Simulated scan of single mutants.
Amino acid sequence: MKKIINQKILLRIIVALFWFAQYVYIPFQNPYLSMINVSANMIGTIIGSYGISQCLLRLPVGVLADSIGKHKCFILIGIAFAGLASFIRVIMPNSEGFLIANILSGIASSTWISYMIHYTGYFSYDDQQKGTSNIILVNNIGILAGFIVSTLFYDKLGMKALCVMSAASGMIGAVLALNIKEHQNQKINSNVPFSKYLLICTNKRLIFFSILALIQQGIQMSTTMSFTTQILKDLGATSLIVGLSSILYMISAVLSAGFASSKFCAKSGPKLWIPSVFSLISVYCILVSTLDSIPVIFLLQILPGMSTGILCSYLTSEAMKEVPQYQKSTAMGFFQAIYAIGMSIFPMFVGKIASSTSIKNGYFLLALLSIFGAAASVIYYKNFNTNILNQNDCIESNES
């Protein structure tokens, strides 16, 4: 038991370092690229490139992880690539360098499958939601630490220093990852054909919640992680305010992830929280794009934090509910590959709309997509409950 606890703590530390490396520069990526005269369209492409490599790699990584039954190598590769990406940003601090680096960062994030599956492997079937929320909580803590550091040091030291810190975090994490031990009950499934793993990708529940996650992640990447910071800058916010707004967002995400793993939150469950948070995000998109008050937009950052903490946790656990153990990594790879599409195309579309018309129109489109997510989840759970009732009626009639 003590060894398991120590391994869980080790993985939490590695996860925090991993996401610190991936996000310490993010609050100032848009303002920095704008400062060096990169167009909004190109910025959208740079941000979207982070998701493109994930779209291509997450499913193959999942299938491969299931087939070999091991996750240590993917965890090690992931954090090493996170560090390498920022090394590229240090030596090529221009649009081309950031484009290459964001592709490498996307490759790193493709291995997040193994981090999650390996960690939730320490929890029983009934505690999978708790395990998922716990690892997302640590994920958010790593990002929060990165946002705090960037806020404190960007004005004083600049973007290059943040990228050096990111590269160092990746290097330290890679050294620690050498000490990870595989689960003793993991089996190598080399005799199982790839087609059998891929069969899980036809699961309707998995597909539905993957599409909702596509919307959630796409909106998050297009707003809080990119263009909202630019909106604040355009309104005259200082770098300190931009950084603090990102910190507020991550504090909300950390607290929300902790709330998502609580018994109180579980009482209402996903049928309440998924549509509710989607609705709040639609309000966020409308208000941020129409208001010209820095303090109000600053406070509105609490809402996407709820999306990252509560919505992401529930969409992940709901998607994985019907997945057999031997297909877990493949299913997670499919889930993350689908939502990576949103991370890729949403910022690109918003960037194009911002260049051709206005950022307001881009945010209105995101609001409509969020409303669609809320409506679709309400309909799903209504039909789901109806199906359960019909099944129970059939059972009762057969027994009588």
Rank of each mutant, 00 (worst) to 15 (best):
A331E: 11
L104H: 05
M348A: 06
I148E: 14
G51Y: 04
T132C: 09
M1R: 14
K72V: 01
V192L: 13
K3Q: 14
A80D: 07
A319I: 04
F18S: 00
S377E: 10
S268Q: 12
V378A: 06
P347V: 00
F364M: 08
G158S: 06
S39Q: 10
Y23R: 04
L104T: 06
I135R: 03
K233T: 13
I297E: 06
F18E: 01
D127W: 01
L232E: 04
S222T: 01
G51H: 02
T386K: 14
N189A: 13
L64S: 15
Q301N: 14
D126I: 00
N6T: 05
F123S: 00
K187E: 13
K187Q: 15
L291W: 04
I274C: 03
N390D: 13
A319Y: 05
N390T: 10
I148L: 15
C73A: 14
S262W: 12
G121R: 09
S49W: 03
S49Q: 08
F153T: 09
Q391M: 14
K352T: 05
E396P: 04
Q217P: 00
P60R: 08
P270D: 12
I219H: 01
F28H: 00
G78L: 07
F372G: 04
G342F: 01
K233Q: 15
G362M: 03
S276W: 04
Q22D: 05
I219F: 01
F74E: 02
T316G: 02
K160L: 02
Q217G: 03
I103Y: 07
A260M: 07
V138H: 07
S358R: 11
I103D: 04
F298H: 08
N102Y: 07
R58P: 01
T120F: 06
Q216A: 08
L299S: 12
Y249K: 03
S356R: 00
E182Q: 12
I180Y: 10
A374C: 14
T308C: 11
G218C: 09
K3G: 05
L64P: 00
A354D: 04
F278Q: 01
I141K: 11
L57G: 04
V164A: 08
Y284I: 08
A375M: 13
S344G: 03
K2Q: 12
L176C: 07
F147Y: 10
G351A: 05
N37E: 12
L244F: 15
I241H: 09
F264E: 09
F87L: 15
C73W: 15
D66K: 15
P193S: 10
S169F: 03
D127Q: 14
K271Q: 11
N361Y: 13
A367M: 08
A376T: 09
A340R: 00
Y125I: 06
L212V: 04
I136Y: 09
L17K: 06
P93K: 08
I207W: 10
C285R: 03
Q327I: 01
Y50E: 03
L157Q: 11
K3C: 02
N139K: 15
N387F: 15
S34M: 08
C55S: 07
